[in-house]
Design a protein around this nucleic acid. Structure first.
Length: 425
RNA sequence: GGCGCGGUGGCAGAGUGGUUGAAUGCACCGGUCUUGAAAACCGGCGGACCCGAAAGGGUCUCGUGAGUUCGAAUCUCACCCGCGCCGCCA
C-alpha cells in the first residue's frame, strides 16, 4: 500500500511507475479518481473536526453551568444539533475514505529505477552459474525416474487429495526431510538467520498484512468455519511476526528462516505443467524473510539473493539469475530476482526462488516500524523475502540434473550426510 | 464447549458520566551536582491525522466495533484476546 501523501505531491511519479509496469491504461483512471478523492477527504476531515471542536466547547460550557447550578438547556439543545451535523459529516468522510482505500489497495508498488520497464520479454539474465546438461533426450523426465525409483507416488497423492498433491515415499520422503534440515541449518549456522516454526493457518488480518487479501482471496485455501486461511508461503506468518509493533534501535537488520508447507489453489492454472512436480497445490519450502532499514534494503536484496544462490551451488544445480522487468515484478515488490534451475529432462528452466525487496509497501500495510535511535519518530521498516528454496521443483531438478545413465541419482555431497547415502537407486 | 474474572501509555498500576490524554511508580531522554559514575534534584517523555512557511492550533485514540448522552476510559450491546476452574482431546 502506498502512502496517501504520494497522491498529493508525487502523482507524476506514481503515473510513471504504473506505465513502467504496463498498467497505466488500466490504473491511470484510478489515479485520477484518487487524486480528486484526496481533496474531498481533506475537506471532509476539516469540516468534521471543526464541528467536533465546537461540540467539545459546548460540552465544557454545559459542565461549567451545571457546576454553578445554572440552567444549560439551551446549550444542550445546541449541542444536540451539532452532534447531528457531525454524524452526517462523518458519514461523508467514511464514504470517501472507503473508496480511497479501495483504490489504494489496487495500486502495485513502485519499482526501483534500475528495474527495466516492460513485461516478461524485458527480463535480463544477470548471471549464470554452472553448466546445465543439454536437453538432448538422454535424460528421463523426473516423473518417470521418480516413479521408477519409488521416491514419490503421484497416483495415490491424487487419490487421497486430488491432482497436484504429492505423496513422497521411502527415500523421497527422507529427501524432503534432508532438504529441510540441510537448508535451515545453513541459513541458521552460516547466514545468521533466526529459525522459526510457524502456524500454517492464519487469520484474515495476517493475510491482509502481506497483501494476499483482499485481492487474491480466490487463490487461497480457506477454512470457512473459522475464517482462517492456509498460507501460500511462510512469508505470510513470518513477515507478520512484528505486525503492529515498533522495533527498537539496533534491532535491524533481522533475518528469519522458516520451513513450511505452502498451499496454492491457483484456480486458473489448470492445463499448464500439470505433470510431475512442477506445479502443485501443496509443496514445501524454506523461506527467508528480512527486515531492513530503508538505507540498506537494496544491499540486503543482494545478500538475500546470495543466500538463496548458495543453496543451489551446494546442491550442484546450475542456475541463472533473472532480474525481472517492472511488468513481471509481483504486485508488492519493488525489485525481484528469480533463480531458475535447468531441468534437462523436461527441457525447462524452473523457477525455484524469487527474492524481492518490498520497500515499505508491506510494512505500511502490516504497520511494522522501527526507531532509528531512542526518542526518534518511528519509521516503516523495509521488508524482503526469498525462497531458499522451493522443494518440489528442486527435487525435480535433482532427479534430472544428477541422473546417471543407469537411471540412478547421484546425491550432491552437501546432502549426503542428511540422506545417509550417495546414490538414490 | 461450559462457568467465572479481566483487557488503561514501554512496563506496573490509579481512575465508575464533566477542564482526564489520563494520577502515581519504574523505564527512557535532557540538564544540575560530581574528577568520573551512582544517588539526589529539575525538566521532558505515546501514536495517527487536519490546518499552518513556522511558531502554534485543532481532531481522534483507554482491546475492536456499534449505541445511549450536550458530554463516555467510565453506562449498554456485539465481537476479539488473555487468565482460572470444569469438560473433551493428539
Amino acid at each position: 500500500m502506498h502512502d496517501i501523501r504520494l497522491l498529493r505531491d508525487q502523482m507524476d511519479h506514481l503515473r510513471e511507475g504504473m506505465r513502467r509496469r504496463g498498467k497505466l491504461d488500466e490504473l491511470g483512471p484510478l489515479l485520477d479518481r484518487a487524486e480528486a478523492l484526496e481533496k474531498d477527504r481533506r475537506d471532509a476531515i476539516r469540516a468534521a473536526e471543526e464541528m467536533q471542536a465546537q461540540r467539545n466547547r459546548i460540552s465544557q460550557e454545559v459542565a461549567q453551568l451545571r457546576r454553578a447550578g445554572e440552567n444549560a438547556d439551551a446549550l444542550m439543545a445546541e449541542g444536540r444539533t451539532v452532534g447531528e451535523q457531525i454524524a452526517s459529516l462523518e458519514a461523508r468522510r467514511q464514504a470517501v475514505e472507503a473508496e480511497m482505500q479501495d483504490i489504494l489497495l489496487q495500486l502495485p508498488n513502485l519499482t526501483l529505477d534500475e528495474v527495466p520497464a516492460g513485461g516478461e520479454e524485458a527480463n535480463d539474465v544477470v548471471r549464470t552459474w554452472g553448466t546445465a546438461r543439454a536437453s538432448d533426450g538422454t535424460v528421463v523426465p523426473h516423473w518417470e525416474v521418480g516413479e521408477r525409483l519409488g521416491v514419490f507416488d503421484l497416483a495415490r497423492g491424487a487419490k487421497i487429495s486430488g491432482s497436484g498433491f504429492i505423496v513422497y515415499r521411502g527415500l523421497g520422503a527422507r529427501l524432503v526431510r534432508a532438504l529441510m534440515n540441510f537448508m535451515v541449518d545453513v541459513h541458521v549456522d552460516e547466514h545468521g538467520y533466526e529459525e522459526l516454526w510457524v502456524p500454517l493457518l492464519v487469520n484474515r488480518a495476517t493475510m491482509t498484512g502481506t497483501g494476499q487479501l483482499p485481492k487474491f482471496e480466490d487463490d487461497m485455501y480457506a477454512v470457512a468455519n473459522d475464517d482462517l486461511f492456509l498460507i501460500p508461503t511462510a512469508e505470510v506468518p513470518v513477515t507478520n511476526l512484528y505486525r503492529d509493533e515498533i522495533l527498537e534501535p539496533g534491532e535491524l537488520p533481522r533475518g528469519f528462516v522458516a520451513f513450511s508447507a505452502c498451499f496454492r489453489r491457483e484456480a486458473g492454472s489448470a492445463g499448464k505443467d500439470t505433470r510431475g512436480l512442477l506445479r502443485v497445490h501443496e509443496f514445501d519450502k524454506v523461506e527467508l524473510v528480512r527486515y531492513a532499514t530503508p538505507e540498506n534494503s537494496r544491499a540486503e536484496l543482494e545478500l538475500l539473493t546470495s543466500h538463496a544462490e548458495t543453496m543451489l551451488q551446494r546442491l550442484e544445480l546450475p542456475y541463472r539469475v533473472l532480474r525481472l522487468a517492472a511488468g513481471d515484478t509481483g504486485f508488492s515488490s519493488a525489485m525481484t530476482y528469480d533463480l531458475e534451475v535447468f531441468a534437462p529432462g523436461v527441457g525447462k528452466w524452473l523457477e525455484v526462488s524469487s527474492c524481492s525487496v518490498f520497500t515499505d509497501f508491506q510494512a505500511r500495510r502490516a504497520n511494522i516500524r522501527y526507531r532509528a535511535a531512542a526518542g526518534e519518530k518511528p519509521r516503516f521498516v523495509h521488508t524482503l523475502n526469498g525462497s531458499a528454496l522451493a522443494f518440489s521443483r528442486i527435487i525435480a531438478a535433482l532427479l534430472e540434473q544428477h541422473q546417471m545413465p543407469d537411471g540412478s541419482i547421484a546425491v550432491p555431497k552437501a546432502l549426503q550426510p542428511y540422506l545417509g547415502r550417495d546414490t538414490l537407486r
